[in-house]
Nucleic acid binder design. Structure first.
Lengths: 125, 125
DNA sequence: TTGCTCCTCACGTCACGTGAGGTGGC
DNA sequence: TTGCTCCTCACGTCACGTGAGGTGGC
């Protein structure tokens, strides 16, 4: 029994270290620790080192998806809490969240602002 | 001779206080001081109070226009410096700045990201 | 005295980046 | 000893917001 087995390197679906989480999801170690500090991730501890479960992995993917959609970490935190409260696996219920509609409105306004800026910038070319 | 005349309240084109600058351009006092701290504005001093000249007003309008176009304060600083170096009145030379093309590219990418996010969000509605 | 305007710190926000300095196992 | 991975502070970035605490002239 060597470290590879203990840390889950050759058993997908088991515990992962920060380094593995970082590489697999293309996020920095700092980001993983920051999300933990903000209560978005809750890795276990192997002494002083972090160990991420399969649930943590699903949470991280949900976080990254929501981030691409332009939600703040605070909003993402609420959504994860709500999912936990309703006993769900993270990442399934975006369609039932009120925040979706508000975010669409928000992004449409951002888009109009960018379009106006582009129109003006192209006049300067 | 009362304060209205000294401070330029009834003589447009003369010195303005922070309060007047703030109201006329819809920016906070903090913003005006922040722009000064970053070297974008250079008001004179009447003792401890700031006095903004007509040149400062043109600079501020240029700053606000560039901000709407999505430039960073650091980029705007460079543009103002360049204009000063070339002996121009602030706000005239945007069409000759190399930054315009890069900013168009940047905003077009931001727009695509927003479009992708909107497409995904609308699927959840 | 009240009320308005001006001021200077200086901490808080957002989502991290970036060292500094140290540990543990091969 | 070198090299890799993990860790904890803690300051820096961006563009300000937001008090705290004080001044000056009507």
């Amino acid at each position: 029994m060597h470290m590879g087995e203990i840390r889950g390197l050759d058993r997908p679906g088991r515990q992962m270290t920060t380094g593995e989480m970082s590489r697999e999801h293309q996020v920095s170690l700092r980001t993983l620790r920051f999300y933990e500090d903000r209560g978005l991730l809750h890795p276990l501890r192997d002494g002083v080192s972090r160990l991420y479960s399969n649930h943590d992995r699903l949470s991280l993917r949900f976080i990254l998806r929501c981030r691409r959609l332009g939600f703040t970490l605070s909003q993402i935190h609420d959504m994860l809490d709500k999912q936990l409260f309703e006993g769900e696996t993270p990442g399934l219920d975006l369609s039932r969240d009120k925040k979706v509609e508000a975010q669409i409105t928000h992004l449409e306004r951002r888009r109009r602002e960018i379009d106006e800026a582009l129109t003006e910038l192209r006049r300067y070319e």
